[in-house]
Amino acid sequence: MTDTPLKTTPKATGGFDHLIYVLRANPVTLLAFGMFALIMLSAILGPALVPYDPLQTNAAKALHPPSWDHWFGTDNVGRDVFSRVIVATRLDLWISVAAVALSFVVGSVLGCIAGYWGGWPDIVLNRILDTIMAFPLFVLAMGIVAALGNTIENIIYATAIINVPFYARLVRAEVNIRRSAGFAQAAKLSGNSDVRVLAMHIFPNALPPMMVQVSLNLGWAILNAAGLSFIGLGVRPPTPEWGIMVAEGANFIVSGEWWMAVFPGLWLMMAVFTFNLLGDGLRDIVDPRKRT
Protein backbone atom coordinates (compact mmCIF):
# COMPACT_ATOMS: atom_id res chain seq x y z
CA MET A 1 0.00 0.00 0.00
CA THR A 2 1.52 3.33 -0.99
CA ASP A 3 0.49 6.75 0.19
CA THR A 4 0.25 8.50 -3.14
CA PRO A 5 0.87 7.39 -6.67
CA LEU A 6 4.26 8.78 -7.64
CA LYS A 7 3.14 10.18 -10.94
CA THR A 8 0.71 12.70 -9.48
CA THR A 9 3.34 14.61 -7.54
CA PRO A 10 5.44 17.05 -9.52
CA LYS A 11 9.01 16.33 -10.42
CA ALA A 12 11.68 18.18 -8.58
CA THR A 13 13.42 20.67 -10.83
CA GLY A 14 16.69 22.49 -10.62
CA GLY A 15 17.26 26.14 -9.90
CA PHE A 16 17.94 27.13 -13.50
CA ASP A 17 14.75 25.54 -14.85
CA HIS A 18 12.91 27.37 -12.12
CA LEU A 19 14.44 30.70 -13.14
CA ILE A 20 13.30 30.17 -16.71
CA TYR A 21 9.84 29.21 -15.47
CA VAL A 22 9.48 32.32 -13.31
CA LEU A 23 10.59 34.54 -16.17
CA ARG A 24 8.14 32.90 -18.55
CA ALA A 25 5.20 32.91 -16.19
CA ASN A 26 5.44 36.61 -15.50
CA PRO A 27 6.25 38.99 -18.37
CA VAL A 28 6.69 41.90 -15.94
CA THR A 29 9.50 40.00 -14.25
CA LEU A 30 11.05 39.33 -17.63
CA LEU A 31 10.89 43.05 -18.44
CA ALA A 32 12.41 43.90 -15.06
CA PHE A 33 15.22 41.42 -15.51
CA GLY A 34 15.87 42.75 -19.00
CA MET A 35 16.13 46.30 -17.75
CA PHE A 36 18.26 45.16 -14.85
CA ALA A 37 20.65 43.48 -17.28
CA LEU A 38 20.84 46.72 -19.26
CA ILE A 39 21.66 48.72 -16.14
CA MET A 40 24.30 46.21 -15.07
CA LEU A 41 25.85 46.29 -18.54
CA SER A 42 26.07 50.05 -18.57
CA ALA A 43 27.54 50.02 -15.06
CA ILE A 44 30.23 47.49 -16.00
CA LEU A 45 31.00 48.35 -19.62
CA GLY A 46 29.60 51.89 -19.79
CA PRO A 47 32.83 53.85 -19.29
CA ALA A 48 34.51 51.80 -22.04
CA LEU A 49 31.71 52.20 -24.55
CA VAL A 50 30.58 55.81 -24.28
CA PRO A 51 31.41 57.99 -27.29
CA TYR A 52 32.89 60.96 -25.35
CA ASP A 53 34.95 61.51 -22.22
CA PRO A 54 32.36 62.45 -19.58
CA LEU A 55 34.69 65.05 -18.10
CA GLN A 56 35.92 66.60 -21.38
CA THR A 57 34.65 70.17 -21.67
CA ASN A 58 34.20 71.89 -25.01
CA ALA A 59 33.12 75.54 -24.83
CA ALA A 60 32.31 75.60 -28.54
CA LYS A 61 29.63 72.96 -28.12
CA ALA A 62 27.95 74.20 -24.91
CA LEU A 63 24.22 73.69 -24.52
CA HIS A 64 23.59 71.91 -27.81
CA PRO A 65 20.19 70.20 -27.97
CA PRO A 66 20.00 66.42 -28.61
CA SER A 67 21.36 65.50 -32.04
CA TRP A 68 22.89 62.50 -33.81
CA ASP A 69 26.30 63.49 -32.46
CA HIS A 70 25.11 64.08 -28.93
CA TRP A 71 22.04 61.92 -28.28
CA PHE A 72 21.13 63.65 -25.04
CA GLY A 73 22.60 67.05 -25.99
CA THR A 74 25.47 68.77 -24.22
CA ASP A 75 25.63 70.67 -20.97
CA ASN A 76 26.67 74.24 -20.16
CA VAL A 77 30.39 73.46 -20.49
CA GLY A 78 29.96 71.28 -23.56
CA ARG A 79 30.18 67.81 -21.98
CA ASP A 80 28.18 65.04 -23.62
CA VAL A 81 25.10 64.33 -21.44
CA PHE A 82 24.63 60.78 -22.80
CA SER A 83 28.18 59.78 -21.84
CA ARG A 84 27.78 61.30 -18.41
CA VAL A 85 24.44 59.58 -17.78
CA ILE A 86 25.84 56.16 -18.71
CA VAL A 87 29.09 56.59 -16.77
CA ALA A 88 27.12 57.74 -13.69
CA THR A 89 25.32 54.35 -13.56
CA ARG A 90 28.33 52.66 -11.98
CA LEU A 91 28.63 55.18 -9.15
CA ASP A 92 24.92 55.29 -8.35
CA LEU A 93 24.59 51.52 -8.46
CA TRP A 94 27.67 51.07 -6.28
CA ILE A 95 26.34 53.46 -3.65
CA SER A 96 22.95 51.78 -3.51
CA VAL A 97 24.21 48.19 -3.60
CA ALA A 98 26.83 48.83 -0.92
CA ALA A 99 24.35 50.65 1.28
CA VAL A 100 21.67 47.98 0.90
CA ALA A 101 24.17 45.15 1.49
CA LEU A 102 25.36 46.87 4.65
CA SER A 103 21.87 47.43 6.00
CA PHE A 104 20.85 43.89 4.98
CA VAL A 105 23.68 42.36 6.99
CA VAL A 106 23.39 44.61 10.02
CA GLY A 107 19.60 44.51 10.02
CA SER A 108 19.54 40.72 9.70
CA VAL A 109 21.92 40.17 12.58
CA LEU A 110 20.06 42.58 14.86
CA GLY A 111 16.66 41.27 13.80
CA CYS A 112 17.70 37.65 14.32
CA ILE A 113 18.96 38.34 17.82
CA ALA A 114 15.86 40.28 18.80
CA GLY A 115 13.44 37.87 17.18
CA TYR A 116 14.99 34.66 18.46
CA TRP A 117 15.94 35.44 22.03
CA GLY A 118 13.52 38.29 22.78
CA GLY A 119 13.91 39.77 26.23
CA TRP A 120 15.94 42.91 26.84
CA PRO A 121 17.95 42.91 23.56
CA ASP A 122 14.61 42.95 21.78
CA ILE A 123 13.29 45.85 23.83
CA VAL A 124 16.50 47.89 23.49
CA LEU A 125 16.74 47.27 19.76
CA ASN A 126 13.13 48.22 19.18
CA ARG A 127 13.50 51.52 21.02
CA ILE A 128 16.64 52.37 19.03
CA LEU A 129 14.90 51.57 15.76
CA ASP A 130 11.90 53.64 16.84
CA THR A 131 14.25 56.54 17.49
CA ILE A 132 15.83 56.25 14.05
CA MET A 133 12.45 56.03 12.40
CA ALA A 134 11.09 58.99 14.33
CA PHE A 135 13.35 61.27 12.23
CA PRO A 136 12.44 62.19 8.69
CA LEU A 137 14.83 59.72 7.08
CA PHE A 138 16.18 61.99 4.39
CA VAL A 139 16.89 64.73 6.89
CA LEU A 140 18.66 62.18 9.08
CA ALA A 141 20.81 61.10 6.13
CA MET A 142 21.61 64.75 5.41
CA GLY A 143 22.64 65.23 9.01
CA ILE A 144 24.87 62.16 9.01
CA VAL A 145 26.66 63.14 5.81
CA ALA A 146 27.02 66.74 6.95
CA ALA A 147 28.47 65.62 10.28
CA LEU A 148 30.77 62.86 9.02
CA GLY A 149 32.04 64.70 5.98
CA ASN A 150 31.21 64.97 2.35
CA THR A 151 32.43 61.66 0.87
CA ILE A 152 30.95 58.76 -1.05
CA GLU A 153 31.60 56.35 1.86
CA ASN A 154 29.60 58.56 4.16
CA ILE A 155 26.67 58.60 1.74
CA ILE A 156 26.79 54.82 1.85
CA TYR A 157 26.86 54.75 5.66
CA ALA A 158 24.05 57.28 5.93
CA THR A 159 21.87 55.37 3.45
CA ALA A 160 22.60 52.12 5.25
CA ILE A 161 21.73 53.54 8.66
CA ILE A 162 18.37 54.89 7.60
CA ASN A 163 17.49 51.53 6.01
CA VAL A 164 18.56 49.25 8.87
CA PRO A 165 15.23 49.56 10.76
CA PHE A 166 13.27 48.12 7.84
CA TYR A 167 15.46 45.02 7.64
CA ALA A 168 15.75 44.55 11.37
CA ARG A 169 11.99 44.70 11.85
CA LEU A 170 11.21 42.42 8.94
CA VAL A 171 13.74 39.82 10.08
CA ARG A 172 12.63 40.10 13.66
CA ALA A 173 9.02 39.36 12.71
CA GLU A 174 9.94 36.50 10.37
CA VAL A 175 12.27 34.90 12.90
CA ASN A 176 9.86 35.38 15.77
CA ILE A 177 7.03 33.47 14.12
CA ARG A 178 9.37 30.59 13.30
CA ARG A 179 11.40 30.28 16.48
CA SER A 180 9.03 27.71 17.97
CA ALA A 181 8.07 26.10 14.66
CA GLY A 182 8.35 22.34 14.50
CA PHE A 183 11.33 22.36 12.18
CA ALA A 184 13.28 24.64 14.52
CA GLN A 185 12.57 22.28 17.44
CA ALA A 186 13.50 19.31 15.29
CA ALA A 187 16.76 21.00 14.34
CA LYS A 188 17.62 21.33 18.03
CA LEU A 189 16.92 17.63 18.50
CA SER A 190 19.30 16.97 15.64
CA GLY A 191 22.07 18.54 17.67
CA ASN A 192 22.11 22.06 16.28
CA SER A 193 22.97 24.77 18.77
CA ASP A 194 20.69 27.81 19.03
CA VAL A 195 22.96 29.89 16.81
CA ARG A 196 23.03 27.19 14.14
CA VAL A 197 19.27 26.71 14.28
CA LEU A 198 18.89 30.43 13.81
CA ALA A 199 21.42 30.85 11.04
CA MET A 200 20.93 27.65 9.06
CA HIS A 201 17.27 26.81 9.61
CA ILE A 202 15.23 29.85 10.54
CA PHE A 203 16.94 32.76 8.80
CA PRO A 204 16.92 31.26 5.27
CA ASN A 205 13.15 31.00 5.55
CA ALA A 206 12.97 34.76 5.98
CA LEU A 207 14.73 35.32 2.64
CA PRO A 208 11.74 35.51 0.28
CA PRO A 209 10.16 38.59 1.89
CA MET A 210 13.68 40.02 2.36
CA MET A 211 14.27 39.87 -1.38
CA VAL A 212 11.27 42.09 -2.01
CA GLN A 213 12.62 44.50 0.58
CA VAL A 214 16.12 44.44 -0.94
CA SER A 215 14.86 45.23 -4.38
CA LEU A 216 12.58 48.06 -3.29
CA ASN A 217 15.38 49.32 -1.11
CA LEU A 218 17.86 49.46 -3.99
CA GLY A 219 15.45 51.82 -5.70
CA TRP A 220 15.11 54.00 -2.61
CA ALA A 221 18.84 53.97 -2.03
CA ILE A 222 19.56 55.24 -5.55
CA LEU A 223 16.95 57.93 -5.07
CA ASN A 224 18.42 58.80 -1.71
CA ALA A 225 21.98 59.04 -3.01
CA ALA A 226 20.83 61.15 -5.93
CA GLY A 227 18.81 63.31 -3.55
CA LEU A 228 21.82 63.95 -1.32
CA SER A 229 23.94 64.86 -4.33
CA PHE A 230 21.16 67.06 -5.63
CA ILE A 231 21.32 69.26 -2.54
CA GLY A 232 25.09 69.32 -2.71
CA LEU A 233 26.05 66.66 -0.20
CA GLY A 234 28.17 63.66 -1.02
CA VAL A 235 29.35 63.36 -4.59
CA ARG A 236 31.04 66.53 -5.85
CA PRO A 237 31.12 67.98 -9.33
CA PRO A 238 32.46 67.33 -11.89
CA THR A 239 31.98 63.60 -11.13
CA PRO A 240 29.08 62.38 -13.26
CA GLU A 241 26.19 61.41 -10.99
CA TRP A 242 22.46 61.54 -11.73
CA GLY A 243 21.50 63.70 -8.76
CA ILE A 244 24.15 66.34 -9.49
CA MET A 245 23.30 66.34 -13.16
CA VAL A 246 19.63 66.98 -12.41
CA ALA A 247 20.64 69.72 -9.99
CA GLU A 248 22.91 71.38 -12.58
CA GLY A 249 20.34 70.96 -15.31
CA ALA A 250 17.53 72.39 -13.20
CA ASN A 251 19.01 75.89 -13.59
CA PHE A 252 18.70 75.69 -17.36
CA ILE A 253 15.13 74.39 -17.63
CA VAL A 254 13.63 77.90 -17.47
CA SER A 255 15.71 78.99 -20.43
CA GLY A 256 14.54 76.01 -22.48
CA GLU A 257 17.60 73.68 -22.20
CA TRP A 258 15.48 70.82 -20.80
CA TRP A 259 17.75 67.94 -21.85
CA MET A 260 20.35 68.54 -19.17
CA ALA A 261 17.92 67.68 -16.35
CA VAL A 262 15.41 65.43 -18.09
CA PHE A 263 17.72 62.64 -19.31
CA PRO A 264 19.52 61.94 -16.03
CA GLY A 265 16.15 62.21 -14.30
CA LEU A 266 14.65 59.73 -16.74
CA TRP A 267 17.53 57.30 -16.13
CA LEU A 268 17.12 57.65 -12.40
CA MET A 269 13.41 56.94 -12.75
CA MET A 270 14.07 53.92 -14.92
CA ALA A 271 16.53 52.46 -12.42
CA VAL A 272 14.12 52.91 -9.51
CA PHE A 273 11.28 51.47 -11.59
CA THR A 274 13.37 48.42 -12.49
CA PHE A 275 14.24 47.64 -8.90
CA ASN A 276 10.65 48.02 -7.78
CA LEU A 277 9.49 45.58 -10.45
CA LEU A 278 12.28 43.16 -9.69
CA GLY A 279 11.07 42.41 -6.17
CA ASP A 280 8.25 40.00 -6.95
CA GLY A 281 10.32 38.03 -9.40
CA LEU A 282 13.23 37.73 -6.96
CA ARG A 283 10.93 36.44 -4.25
CA ASP A 284 9.52 33.80 -6.57
CA ILE A 285 13.03 32.66 -7.45
CA VAL A 286 14.23 32.48 -3.85
CA ASP A 287 11.15 30.67 -2.52
CA PRO A 288 11.48 26.90 -2.96
CA ARG A 289 7.74 26.49 -2.50
CA LYS A 290 7.22 28.05 -5.93
CA ARG A 291 9.56 25.44 -7.37
CA THR A 292 7.01 22.81 -8.31
Binding site: A181, G182, F183, Q185, A186, A187, L189, G191, H201, P204, N205, P288, R289
Partner: peptide
Protein backbone atom coordinates in the same frame (compact mmCIF):
# COMPACT_ATOMS: atom_id res chain seq x y z
CA UNK B 1 20.94 14.12 22.70
CA UNK B 2 21.04 11.26 20.20
CA UNK B 3 19.32 8.90 22.64
CA UNK B 4 16.15 10.93 23.13
CA UNK B 5 14.33 11.95 19.96
CA UNK B 6 10.87 13.02 18.97
CA UNK B 7 8.41 12.74 16.08
CA UNK B 8 6.41 15.93 15.85
CA UNK B 9 2.69 16.37 15.58
CA UNK B 10 2.48 18.30 12.35
CA UNK B 11 4.73 16.78 9.70
CA UNK B 12 4.43 19.88 7.52
CA UNK B 13 5.42 22.29 10.27
CA UNK B 14 8.29 20.12 11.47
CA UNK B 15 10.12 20.00 8.13
CA UNK B 16 12.19 22.97 7.05
CA UNK B 17 10.51 24.26 3.87
CA UNK B 18 13.92 25.06 2.35
Amino acid sequence: RAEIQMVFQDATDSLNPR
